[in-house]
């Protein structure tokens, strides 16, 4: 007789019955069950990866929107506080040239030197060649 059995017999009968009941109810993980659990886990984590792609798409959309905004602002004149264009034919000569920059520099002293320089650089940009000549 296994000495451990004699030890078990010394235990209270209620505990012995409970342990025997738990032993009978033990679940065996067969290979089929293991594959099933693995498949479920794979499906679960795959779904999580798909959900993470949504924020990436949102970031891409935000970046695209910012790029469009930058391009639009770059192509359009800057407005002053009253909504008037400041990079424009201010002296009414029929074209935008350095005289408009001088006009702006004299009339809009609150503008920064950087803004004045930006206007002047637009005037001399070779992309404005057709307007200048």
């Amino acid at each position: 007789m296994d000495p451990r059995d004699s030890d078990i017999e010394d235990l209270p009968q209620a505990l012995i019955d409970d342990l025997e009941a738990r032993d009978r109810g033990m679940t065996l993980l067969t290979a089929r069950v293991d594959r099933h659990i693995e498949a479920q886990a794979f499906a679960q984590f795959s779904a999580r990866r798909k959900r993470r792609r949504v924020p990436r798409a949102a970031w891409a959309a935000l970046a695209a929107s910012l790029l469009v905004a930058i391009l639009v602002l770059d192509r359009n004149p800057i407005d002053d506080d009253m909504g008037h264009e400041i990079y424009a034919d201010l002296d009414g000569s029929g074209r935008i040239d350095i005289a408009d920059v001088l006009h702006l520099a004299r009339q809009r002293e609150r503008l920064s030197q950087e803004e004045i320089n930006a206007f002047a650089m637009k005037v001399v940009s070779l992309s404005s060649w057709e307007k200048a000549s």
């Binding site: 040239d97 001088l102 002047a120 005037v123 070779l126 200048a132």
Partner: peptide
């Protein structure tokens, strides 16, 4: 191959 040059003074 061409250039626009300008300046102003206050």
């Amino acid at each position: 191959d061409r250039i626009i040059v300008a300046d102003f003074s206050l």
